[in-house]
Design a protein around this nucleic acid. Structure first.
Lengths: 332, 332
DNA sequence: AGGAAAATTGTTAGCGCTCACAGTGGTGAG
DNA sequence: CTCACCACTGTGAGCGCTAACAATTTTCCT
């Protein structure tokens, strides 16, 4: 049987509260007492029961991180950074996967895994404000990424500006027929809409006529779906001069198809991605991309979340994380 | 303020215990009562307090998953599968990163994040039995991967056999000078040792003389370290005919270096990896690898863990997951 | 030295839940 | 009609911890 505060208290010859004081270090404890208690803790191999502490305090010290799919490199890098930053600050992280399912996103936001978590960092794919019941008091939530709504605090990269800059960068290498991979046929994700908007803005600036046959739809943003979408596109369309993929993962799938067809990157077609996942720089050829500091995303998200957990008041805040265009071999 | 069982009970005109019975569904409840209670739960937007339940039951419904580094594709895929399988069975998953730090591995095993978790799935890198204090009662633990010790239940792939088979497969394409990337100079990880052993066994079978200049050390198994290690190796050694990388991540780093140097894969050198991460099939060229079912690893690990959480007795068990050699373009 | 303030420790109670057990009412057998 | 027996529901207690408060000791000043 595990030792409890009582056992420790008895062994140290003090009251349970004093043991608690030693553990938490808020209330001052005299040196001699502290030593006695710490000794007893060691001897009994005492570990505090977090369920009890959570019940008493109303806080568990655990936050949840909800991502569409942990297996994708982007999500994995975000998760890595959030876990690391959270750990530094003494938080544990519970992982939830939404599978891009809006129902699951809402469920997590409104119920928030009952009381075992104190807050939620959510990377939504489709989150529609109207569907969140008004009057339901939300737990502390921070949203990650491009969300058009103003449901909660939010950390994001300016996708419109980034997509515009990337399109301009591709044009600067002399290419005019620039295709994008990752648009949606119906109403797509917020990210798809914003990145398409940035792309169009750039074309307009450049005085290039809009040509919707250069929009290659691809609903799910995986290498596989990107490969399939691009392959079928190429069967019925001429090769564009550049291909701006809305994520690095899609770019990797795309380059794989191009290579299989003997189309050379970047001499036949330039390729660019978005996210700067670690694998991008080891892709063949290394991938031009929109880069941003994921550690910063994580730490800002956690900052917003802890601040909101501390006191519920305050305006909804938005943190915009800087990005930069990183030109590698794929856009030569 | 959140509603509690008491509130629900009052509103439904029953006792708290009955509400509890409805929630848990073990003790039978009459249809009429059940309806009343469910109605009240809905109206009050009642969510049970898991801290309280955990305190009362001694179990929290949360398991921990500890991996070296979530950002690596291999860990990410494992995490994805564990989270998904666990979720199907009603478990939540708390993520811990060890950073391959043995101290952290021990700490997790012996203290197990106190009582907020009911069990631990740990993917250790270096875990040395001798360092675990005898007499400390371990929480339910399942180890993932190649671990030489018998500390706990374990799910793994037979690395020796797999490395042997891969070496034989590479030899079957007519190549004799087969190098391996990922050995350690000092005492390395269990996986490095076992894979090297399999490689040597194959060479012996083939009657190829042992040539230690074909062992390319690389302690950390990342694309970056692999790229650096291979680049420096190639500066002072002739190009081998085949390169067996101990993980897919390393293979991706290696192929990036080869491409930068104008060395063609597979015509100049065949490349193979281990793990079958998703990106491998979209690598350029697509990567030959040792494949195994990660979903199966996850579900077996969870099965062992839940069984052990249910009753502490029983022998230590080992589950071996099948693998197969998948030959893609990189070994031509 | 006397007394008040400050520092430290103890006491009581209850967070929300579910276990063991004790009822309650209804059914069928004797 | 009585009693054993089932199906269901209620009662009381306490899991381990710490907030609020009370009690005690120490410190420091005049």
């Amino acid at each position: 049987m595990r030792a409890t505060v009582k056992d420790v208290a008895r062994r140290a010859g003090v009251s349970p509260k004093t043991v608690s004081n030693v553990m938490n270090g808020i209330v001052p404890v005299s040196g001699a007492t502290r030593v006695k208690v710490e000794q007893a803790i060691l001897e009994l191999d005492y570990v505090p029961n977090l369920s009890a502490r959570g019940l008493r305090n109303g806080r568990s010290g655990v936050i949840a991180l909800a991502l569409p799919d942990l297996a994708t490199p982007y999500s994995a890098e975000i998760a890595h950074n959030v876990v690391e930053v959270a750990h530094e600050q003494g938080w544990s992280v519970q992982i939830e996967e939404t599978g891009s399912d809006p129902r699951r996103e809402y469920e997590l936001m409104s119920r928030a895994r009952s009381n075992l978590i104190d807050g939620l960092i959510l990377n939504p794919v489709v989150l529609d404000e109207s569907a969140v019941k008004v009057g339901v008091s939300l737990p502390p939530v921070v949203l990650l990424g491009e969300v058009s709504q103003k449901l909660a605090d939010r950390v994001w990269v300016d996708s419109v500006a980034a997509a515009r800059d990337m399109t301009l960068a591709l044009a600067r290498t002399g290419r005019r027929r620039i295709a994008v991979l990752g648009t949606a046929e119906g109403r797509g994700s917020a990210a798809a809409i914003l990145r398409t908007r940035g792309y169009r803005a750039a074309l307009e600036e450049l005085g290039i006529d809009r040509d919707d046959s250069l929009l290659i739809p691809c609903e799910k943003w995986t290498p596989h779906t990107a490969a399939v979408a691009l392959a079928s596109y190429l069967d019925s369309h001429p090769l564009p001069e550049a291909l701006f993929c809305f994520t690095d993962s899609m770019a990797i799938g795309a380059m794989s198809v191009l290579w299989k067809r003997g189309i050379s990157v970047p001499s036949d077609v330039a390729v660019a991605g978005f996210d700067d996942i670690a694998d991008g720089q080891y892709a063949v050829p290394s991938l031009t991309t929109v880069s941003f500091d994921k550690r910063r995303v994580a730490s800002e998200a956690l900052r917003l979340l802890t601040e909101r957990m501390a006191d519920r008041v305050g305006e909804q805040r938005v943190v915009t994380v800087d990005y930069k265009i990183v030109e590698r071999d794929s856009s030569g």
